[in-house]
Design a protein around this nucleic acid. Structure first.
Length: 593
RNA sequence: CGGGGUGUAGCUCAGCUUGGUAGAGCGCUUGGUUCGGGACCAAGAGGUCGUAGGUUCGAAUCCUGUCACCCCGACCA
């Protein structure tokens, strides 16, 4: 490909509204342009990278036994009404009417379509299991699109759905997909971690996220490692179990009530009373399926809504508004576990849920359920008596906590969620009456799994993880081109040689971006660094007079530049490219064991 | 949805407070000099100042509505 013919409008200046590195670089290097909030045009360079990611996904999924199909982006409302998500999904579901006034949606996901298809076309257990996937543009009307392609409204996604006769077979496929995902992200050259995750509104009860490790990631994850540094457990913080600390403190002073005028926050109370925030009980009021709940933890921690929801077996958890709290007889800012207001005709009693990190502590401070008053010297077992079924792991995990699974100390990292695997069970098949006839002649709902990969987001995550001040440093398997061939002049000798090298490399299946523009070398180096192809071959100028060309990896410094005799250039470049590609394949083989 | 902010040339922005007929740098076109890490000189092209209305002799500037976009929060397979 000739650079002079390529539409890759690079920018010297950074567009004002790009906050994260991947967004900035994709704009500056001429990969994408914004059309509307969260909606982007993918220019040729981006398209090439997306195609590569998609093809790696295809190869690995086909190899794992899945089949590709394509479902409609536009879906009739009836399907969504059947599954119940027409009401549940909310404003993120983009709805519209056709000319006849019928309701439609633009698919944010395809559980309904695939379930309807399989329901109609698959009748017998003999046709199962089945795993079907597509790679397609999705639309989710995000509340707040941001970070360019990382969190757009329109994006390309691979979604797969599997159908099984029973749980055991579905779990087998889950493991199969887990391995395929591990291979896919390894082959993309990414450093990632599979973590246990919440299933959210999609339902199901087993789920892993694949998180690309990057400090700019939106997700917080924690993990434990063994002596060799190999991860032994990893989870999203919203799910990661925190082991209960073993405290057994003896009370030294009697409990009393003190004035704390207008001191509402943990910081204010702690500073006013001269105690560390970790000694102040934090009380957060929730509306749990319509009932008030007071969740308590130590002041240096945060109550985790996902855990609270799970522990209480609730459908819906949200923060209680101040007015609602007052209506229930509570004093926001001064709530505490002692003498909670009793149930009255106007409101039910307030239920108490306490984090197990509080157990066994003494000398605590907590709200006294009276304006401008707190209890001090509160001691577990003496003043604070909590029934076992009100005590649970309720806080968000953080570095330094002990893991609830293996008791090792958690380390923390940030991640970008690029893939997610779910065990769905029969949620959709039951709702949509999708059944097959089993060996026992009875009708059974399919047991389902679903598996997603954000194709566009994977590319953005790769940039977040692989860049420097000069631009992108693509992992070779997903770079738009393998080689940037830079002609350092446009004289005949240089151009003839460059053309010859281009042809020879392409003959070996190597993708070359030949910068044939009549530009100064500095401009070409800058643009090609920005674009980020993994190998650079520079031809012409000083080195040509010495009878050599220059070869450098994008990840190397100028000092590491190789001077290669012209007749060895093709061999050297090809060996470098093939070496980089082979490394990624080997990583996939190693990782998938 | 709550809070904050911004819309002026393809991009980054100045001009707005205090109304007087539109600016800079980068990019683009042409010519010349250059030529190994985003060159220099000269000459050009390019803007209904988001949009609708109002105030005024006169509006990019003041007022009102509206739309779009960005940031923080809430939200989120």
């Amino acid at each position: 490909m000739r650079y002079s013919k390529l539409l890759a409008p690079t920018l010297k200046e950074t567009p004002a509204d790009a906050v994260v590195v991947s967004h900035r670089l994709m704009l500056r290097a001429g990969y994408v342009r914004k059309l509307s909030a969260g909606i982007y045009t993918y220019l040729p360079l981006a398209q090439r990278t997306f195609t590569k990611v998609a093809n790696i996904i295809r190869e690995e999924l086909n190899r794992a036994g899945a089949q590709e199909l394509t479902m409609p982006a536009v879906q009739p409302a009836e399907l969504w009404q059947e599954s119940g998500r027409w009401e549940q999904y909310g404003a993120e579901l983009l709805r519209f009417k056709d000319r006849k006034g019928n309701d439609f949606v633009i698919g944010p996901t395809h559980e309904e379509v695939i379930t309807a298809l399989v329901r109609d076309e698959v009748k017998s257990y003999k046709q199962l299991p089945l795993n079907l996937y597509q790679i397609q543009t999705k639309f989710r009307d995000e509340v707040r699109p941001r970070f360019g392609i990382m969190r757009g409204r329109e994006f390309v996604m691979k979604d797969a759905y599997s159908f099984h006769v029973d749980d055991a077979d579905a779990h087998k496929e889950y493991d199969n997909m887990f391995r395929a995902y591990t291979r896919i992200f390894s082959r993309c050259g990414l450093r990632f971690r599979a973590v246990e995750a919440d299933t959210g509104s999609i339902g199901g009860n087993r789920s892993h996220e694949f998180q690309v490790l990057a400090d700019s990631g939106e997700d917080a994850i924690v993990f434990t490692v063994d002596a060799a540094g190999k991860p032994t457990y990893a989870a999203n913080v919203e799910l990661a179990p925190v082991a209960a600390a073993e405290h057994n403190e003896k009370p030294e002073l009697p409990c009393s009530v003190v004035d704390t005028p207008k001191k509402k926050t943990i910081e204010e109370v702690a500073a006013f009373l001269g105690v560390p925030p970790a000694r102040v009980l934090k009380g957060v009021l929730f509306d749990v399926d319509g009932k008030p709940v007071l969740a308590m933890c130590l002041g240096d921690r945060d109550i985790n809504e996902v855990k609270l929801k799970k522990v209480l077996g609730a459908k819906d958890v949200r923060l209680l508004l101040d007015e609602e709290a007052k209506a229930a007889g509570l004093k926001p800012g001064f709530v505490g576990p002692l003498n909670l207001p009793a149930a009255q005709a106007s409101h039910p009693s307030v239920m108490l849920a306490v984090d197990h990190g509080v157990k066994g502590l003494a000398g605590l401070v907590c709200g006294a359920n009276a304006w401008d008053k707190h209890h001090v010297q509160v001691a577990w077992g003496r003043d604070l008596i909590v029934a076992d079924d009100c005590l649970a792991d309720l806080t968000t995990a953080k570095a330094g906590d002990r893991c609830g699974k293996n008791s090792d100390v958690y380390q923390a990292a940030r991640g970008i969620e690029v893939g997610h695997v779910f065990f769905l069970g029969t949620k959709y098949s039951t709702a949509m009456k999708a059944t097959f006839q089993g060996e026992d002649k009875a009708e059974h709902p399919y047991v389902m799994g679903c598996y997603g990969i954000g194709v566009t987001r994977t590319a953005a995550a790769a940039i977040e993880q692989n860049h420097d001040d000069d631009g992108i440093r693509w992992p070779a398997p997903i770079a738009p081109f393998h080689v940037s061939l830079v002609a350092l002049g446009v004289d005949k000798e240089t151009m003839d040689l460059a053309e010859k090298l281009e042809g020879a490399l392409e003959g070996l299946g190597i993708e070359v971006l030949f910068d044939d523009r009549d530009e100064r070398p500095g401009v070409k180096f800058k643009d090609n660094d920005l674009i980020g192809n993994p190998v650079r071959l520079a031809v012409g100028g000083k080195s040509l007079k010495e009878g050599v060309v220059e070869v450098k990896l994008r990840s190397e410094t100028k000092e590491q530049l190789r001077k290669v005799p012209i007749n060895e250039a093709v061999h050297v470049v090809a060996a470098l490219v093939n070496g980089l590609l082979a490394d990624a394949r080997k990583a996939a083989d190693d990782a998938a064991v």
